[in-house]
Design a protein around this nucleic acid. Sequence first.
DNA 1: AATGAATGAGCCTTCATTCAT
DNA 2: TATGAATGAAGGCTCATTCAT
Lengths: 221, 221, 221, 221
Amino acid sequence: MLIRMATKSKTVLEESTLARQHKRKAESRQRLLAAARQLFVERGYHDTRPQDISRLAGVGHGTFYLYFSDKKACFQAFVALTQAEVDALIRVRLAACKTNEERVYGALETSMDYVQANPGVLKAAWAGHQLMAREDPQGAPTPSISDEWAAGWAKVILNGQKAGMIWQDYDPEIIGYAVLVVTSVVSYGALRKGAEREHFLTNLTKFILRALRAPKASTPS
Amino acid sequence: MLIRMATKSKTVLEESTLARQHKRKAESRQRLLAAARQLFVERGYHDTRPQDISRLAGVGHGTFYLYFSDKKACFQAFVALTQAEVDALIRVRLAACKTNEERVYGALETSMDYVQANPGVLKAAWAGHQLMAREDPQGAPTPSISDEWAAGWAKVILNGQKAGMIWQDYDPEIIGYAVLVVTSVVSYGALRKGAEREHFLTNLTKFILRALRAPKASTPS
Amino acid sequence: MLIRMATKSKTVLEESTLARQHKRKAESRQRLLAAARQLFVERGYHDTRPQDISRLAGVGHGTFYLYFSDKKACFQAFVALTQAEVDALIRVRLAACKTNEERVYGALETSMDYVQANPGVLKAAWAGHQLMAREDPQGAPTPSISDEWAAGWAKVILNGQKAGMIWQDYDPEIIGYAVLVVTSVVSYGALRKGAEREHFLTNLTKFILRALRAPKASTPS
Amino acid sequence: MLIRMATKSKTVLEESTLARQHKRKAESRQRLLAAARQLFVERGYHDTRPQDISRLAGVGHGTFYLYFSDKKACFQAFVALTQAEVDALIRVRLAACKTNEERVYGALETSMDYVQANPGVLKAAWAGHQLMAREDPQGAPTPSISDEWAAGWAKVILNGQKAGMIWQDYDPEIIGYAVLVVTSVVSYGALRKGAEREHFLTNLTKFILRALRAPKASTPS
DNA sequence: AATGAATGAGCCTTCATTCAT
DNA sequence: TATGAATGAAGGCTCATTCAT
């Protein structure tokens, strides 16, 4: 009995030790990623050193390389994280939308919310991503953040066309890309000239909707 | 006699030397800029070294610093050159336009022509420009290429509004930026999927015009 | 009762634990040494990290330092082990030899057997040993593997001289070293050009014996 | 006339400038190689840093990489230099030899002279060379110093066999290697125990000659 | 004006070792 | 005893810039 208890307690101890280590490990990665995000945003890819990230994260230099094989790998993790965050937000928002108006407005507003809550993050992720592509032409052609989103818009447009809501003569892929680009204006221009959020959003939403909407309703008159 | 000859020949020599030097000086700068453009486009800002530019230009390493105080200065010269080129082309084209349709289509076509004639140049100038801005936050806030163009579109839009051709509820600055961004799609997406030039151009032109054009209902009064 | 049981079981537990611990301790050291040998041979001293050794041995990184104070200490343990192995084999073989012919042939064959059974081990031990010597000039002047073996040959030669079998004008130490070096050829050149073992061995044996054996003319008197 | 003089003097100036630069360039390489030799010998390959070499040579850190693409490349240059030096010395010496006795003795003496004049150099070149081989298994299989020399001995032996001076039952390649290894003893053991040069040389020469010489002359008696 | 050898601060990365558990 | 996350000094190398000619 005692033996079993001892054995068990030992096991418990080991487990808790392991658990604590795992927790610590996970924490370190989190802190590194948070620091990386901050610095990549503030200084850009080339002016951020692994050392800086480590110091800001409060860990040793070498620890960085326990979690990322590379400076590049760290950046890609940052990009992936950002992409996943925005993607999740938009997905949630769009799920509740029924009309294209709502979709466009929702996507724009969600992006803008994210941009305002995380100033510069989307811009940094986007800009750095372009660099990566050039530097490593034969490396795994990291699927661009934008490509997936543009494809999403293309699908929305195609559905709109089938329903007669969107001009039939559009090429969904091209226009999908155009819509994406307009929505991306929020990540660059949001805070310029103190343009107010509402004003900004309304203008862009109208712009897109008017460009898309087929003159069906207006024809029958 | 000997003196006069010497004097004269010296003067002549100096003149021709100076002339040649000026010519040579201008030539060297040209060649450096041409080399810089090629390399900045092919490799991007960070992966292009002054030494590479000099070698490609066929001049000594040190010569680079006779014409540019800095690597950064060289890049800015490249950006300014590119901007001036495109600007001139568009200006010429738009001068002959009478309707907004023509203006939009003309601007898009001119940009696309430039992009196809100089693949990657606009993209490189744009991308690198963003880097500069971050790296030197207090330095002369280099006027963005895009800002001027966006302002141009804003003016076009304002005029259109006065003439009742464009929705009155648009903020010219914001929509000017949106139009610019859509036109910039040509510099990124032009060659994707072998989309044919005509197809691409038509789609984007329609997109912009439909977004801008006010319904006839609003014209009367 | 409970106490006694507890006490007894505790004692039992301790004993078995201790026993197991000892066994485990010995096992861990063995496994580390085996892993170290493999890696030192495959990659050489500088390209083998304690972490690699630990992983290959299937123990934690820190465990390495429970058994070796140092990476260097681990290497020296490996060298000592290798030396001991070969030494034991040769000692056994020579014990049964009566003539110098047998001794030379036996030593060569034993070395070659070892080299073929453990490819690269002797070479690695030898090469690494040289490094150690240079890196730690004031440290305990690790007795060279070769020095002891050379001394062994010197003794053999001296005996041969006394018996009139070996040239009297040889300096046993120098020639001992020469013999050793020739025998060491097997560890470098054994597998070159697929030279057959027999051929190789015969050549080297003849070479050494002819160099050593005194002419019969000098025997009488 | 004056013009031509001016032109000419300019040309002369340019030439002398180029010449001086070339000279300076050559000098830097020389100094770097000399420093590299000293440090590789004193500390071995792994404990010598490019920085150390540069500092000892009296040039900047980066200058090192103007002359050697790599630390490894620098070491290989050192090895090649050493090999060339010894090779030239031996070649000169052997050219004047008529008998094998002279050849063996000459080669040994030359090597020993070199070793005494440049203590440790041969040893360092040899030892480091072995490391290189392991570290870069697929790299250009740098022809070993020893392989060429062994081949040289093999040729000597073959000729000796044709002339009936050397045992017919030897495989020239194997025995060539054995002879080389014995001669290499001088680079390792020369200064051990203060063995006197003459004594050492004589012993090794006898050893080799007795191993090689066929008992022709002694048969007819 | 032109050259190109020289410079050295600074970057990314590795790895032998420690220590909290 | 055993673990493995954490450490940070040190290494090899790059490249924007200077300077003697």
